[in-house]
Amino acid sequence: MVTIEKSERLKILKTYKLYIGGEFPRTESGRYFSLKDADGNQIANVCSGSRKDFRNAMVVARTAFGKWSKRTAYNRSQIVYRIAEMLEARKNQFTDELTIQGVDKVKAEREVHEAIDLLIYYAGWADKYQQLFSSVNPVAASYFNFSLPEPTGVVSIIAPEENSLLGLVAMIAPVITGGNACVILASESKPLCAVTFGEVLNSSDVPGGVVNILTGSRKELLPQFSTHMDVNAVFYGAGIPEELKEIQMNAALNVKRVADSNVMHSGTGKEMQDPYLIMNFQETKTIWHPIGI
């Protein structure tokens, strides 16, 4: 008689891919690196994105920027709020992912909560920053003169190594709240949450291409993120002075904006709440409107 032993259920490992233009492609280079936990067990294979992935992401980001920047502020607010809702619904998954990447359980939970709260915070700003940062300017001529902020375009973002979820969200939120599109390089050592966050974005009414997420080597991709002529601004959050210097020198090529923030890799969610981060990626338009004396 044949006995069939009940075998243990096979492990199903998730495939972590890139997030470009609302889709989840593998890197065109076909390269990947293995991610291991503290005990040396393999957690996942992660795409090692290439410059061509970045170029492709830039093309879709540029296209997406046009429509996204023309959405009403109110609608952008709704969508950023929706991201928070979706994140809330999947917070256990994010907590688990942070934990297997070595973050303490209590800290991981706090990080996820802070990330959600941060999105709510920026959702509130979407239809307010423009009125608050606009001005009517006194001029000595017969003009009504006023200035208002408008989104700069496509922003490339270098996310921090630590705070791999919170820092990522804290850098994306002010950029897209202000009507920009972006391409992000996720944390190299803790990339899992970034890819899963792409799934959250994909189910939150964020149009494809507004946010694009790459994983891979920072050293390799930093020059691409800062030299590409179609990037309007670089947002650096990894906190390494030499890298920042390299970015600033590359950005001089076509005078990109460079913003850096030191709270992203070590700060708390509270410290990341800052409307001036929205303003870092805005251009000021001033209008001279003729009037009678």
């Binding site: 170029r55 030299t227 002529m229 076509n254």
Partner: peptide, 9 residues
């Protein structure tokens, strides 16, 4: 130049 270009230019 070695740099990816933009239609802006």
């Amino acid at each position: 130049t070695g740099y990816y270009q933009s239609l802006d230019y």
